[in-house]
Design a protein around this nucleic acid. Sequence first.
DNA 1: CTAGCTGCAAAGGTTTTGCACATGC
DNA 2: GCATGTGCAAAACCTTTGCAGCTAG
Lengths: 156, 156
Amino acid sequence: MLGIIPKQEIIHIIMHNHTRGNRIDLDSALKSHGVQSTPQRRAIWEFYSSQNRGITITEAIEVLQGAGIGQATVYRTTFLLFDLGLLHRIQLASDQVCYVALKSEHSHPLVCKRCHDVVEFDTCDLSVLEKLLNVQTGYEIDGHQLEVYGVCPKCQ
Amino acid sequence: MLGIIPKQEIIHIIMHNHTRGNRIDLDSALKSHGVQSTPQRRAIWEFYSSQNRGITITEAIEVLQGAGIGQATVYRTTFLLFDLGLLHRIQLASDQVCYVALKSEHSHPLVCKRCHDVVEFDTCDLSVLEKLLNVQTGYEIDGHQLEVYGVCPKCQ
DNA sequence: CTAGCTGCAAAGGTTTTGCACATGC
DNA sequence: GCATGTGCAAAACCTTTGCAGCTAG
């Protein structure tokens, strides 16, 4: 009963949910932080956005150098996008880190441990938890990072 | 009304909650994974456990070399402990990663963005979310990573 | 026009590795 | 006693930086 939803369908469901949230607009995101929109930045964002799996910096460099973008720029831009909250950073194995473009403004990745495919979800309600933590600890809560891990239907 | 709980008290509350969960026993954890318990591994675990804030590998190396432990061993052991699920890995700034020892088997860190102090909580109930994701996506869910960020009372 | 961005290549830092020796079981 | 773990130092790798030229606004 589980795992029989065709992949296409899943993507569709996910995309459908996303259209309810605010889609991310790179240019406004950059402008609102007072930094320029350049062809390189757009290309790098485009690349991350076009993948639905975690991308390591090394992979990104490899691909984007083919498009004539310098490795330093890939580093600089990836960190910039991460700092702006447009990329999600994911822990794979003990030492591997990869990035996924957020599709909507509040979303979390569900990552396949085997093939690293990622689907996103935005239906996490942690406001109650955050309130509780605030009362219990006195911390002024201002965000969370949630990643869920599993094995995708294809890999099961 | 918030932020007036003395730190001592907070730690107490947190520790008290933890005693309800299973405390972590390094030796059994190591043995159950078929790896040896050595003085170095115990010392490194001891060190992470004694801190209530995120520790970078560089900091760990610096301290533990004082105890005569080689840097390669610190790397190897830190990754081992992380792979065994005994250390939590935390993203600080865009490129800084640090580690925190889990106090009980299912716990999550609440991290101060300024001083990197960490308190842990185990009251997250994501089973409903995990079930939903399973049905929606066909993924076989087997874990999640949740980090909450904020500013601790001291830093406010 | 100018502040901000980029590519290049070198410097700097971090992580991994091979190997001889030591140690847990 | 032997498989596993460790320290050392070198190698490999990854990330950052300085700078001259380019470009977005």
